[in-house]
């Protein structure tokens, strides 16, 4: 298994405040990697650095390297829009556009220049099938996406991300706003998607990390404390702080 993303000596500042300290990590392809840690530990910030969504926040400064497929994403030759297409993102709160289901999915492909109706129809169906929501919405593609339930909206957002054919999916606590049944559907879906995609997921829920992830990274106060195989990390943590966290002593 080769590494999809390699991060070397990465630091991040919000103005004067250093939010991430010297992160080094390699993320293998076609697997699920979970980021855990208490609120404000920097795991979400780190996730958003991987597709440069942090560029949009004023006063953010990053040093070090993030290599995607061996290429530094901060290199001036990298087109940030192309990067974001290849490294897709699913947000904490389901955020479908206030348009029809069809238009939501077609938005990305259209943006990237696909105008052909048959081709778009194809992409829409494929993406919705991959996100395991096709059966539920196939009769109401022209209806407003905001009419779906929270769990359906989140799967729609995953389908929307898949529609631009990314290689990586970043998921920022994708189930924290959902009920248990919807949560398990998203988890199932993630397990299936890892056959074709590299998934990186921030989660607050340690059971979720254990259930679905292959690797886990534990963040604390802007540092990557421990990173490794999920089973190993949860059964025999090397660091005292990791042990304290996963046994529920803080956070």
């Amino acid at each position: 298994m080769s590494n999809m993303i390699t991060v070397k000596n990465m630091c991040l500042w919000y103005g004067e405040h250093q939010a991430l300290k010297n992160i080094n990590v390699s993320i293998p392809e076609k697997s699920i990697t979970a980021f855990i840690g208490p609120s404000g530990c920097g795991k979400s910030t780190f996730l958003k650095s991987l597709n440069r969504m942090n560029d949009l926040i004023q006063g953010v400064r990053i040093t070090g390297d993030i290599l995607y497929n061996g290429k530094n994403i901060f290199d001036s030759s990298v087109d940030v829009n192309e990067l974001r297409r290849e490294v897709g993102m699913v947000f904490q709160k389901p955020n479908p556009f206030p348009m029809s289901i069809y238009d939501n999915i077609a938005y990305g492909p259209r943006t990237h220049g696909i105008k052909n109706k048959a081709k778009l129809d194809d992409i829409v169906e494929c993406s919705l099938r991959d996100a395991a929501i096709w059966e539920e919405v196939k009769d109401r593609l022209k209806k407003n996406a905001l009419g779906l339930s929270g769990g359906q909206q989140q799967r729609l957002c995953i389908a929307r991300a898949l529609a631009v054919k990314p290689a990586v999916l970043l998921m920022d606590e994708p189930t924290s706003a959902l009920d248990p049944i919807s949560t398990s559907k998203i988890e199932e879906l993630s397990m299936k998607l890892k056959e074709n995609y590299t998934i990186i997921m921030v989660t607050h829920n340690m059971q979720q990390a254990v259930r679905i992830s292959d690797q886990t990274a534990f963040f604390l106060l802007g540092e990557l404390i421990e990173y490794g195989n999920t089973e190993t990390l949860f059964s025999t943590p090397k660091d005292k702080r990791t042990e304290d966290y996963i046994t529920g002593r803080f956070g």
Binding site: N51, M53, L56, N81, E82, L83, R84, R85, E86, G88, M89, F91, K93, N95, P96, F97, P98, Y107, G108, T111, H112, C157, R160, A161, V164
Partner: peptide, 19 residues
Amino acid sequence: EYENASLALGATPIETYFR
């Protein structure tokens, strides 16, 4: 959130604002 979703799909800011 709408704008972030669009940017994360690889749309540029201007495309995001108008679309």
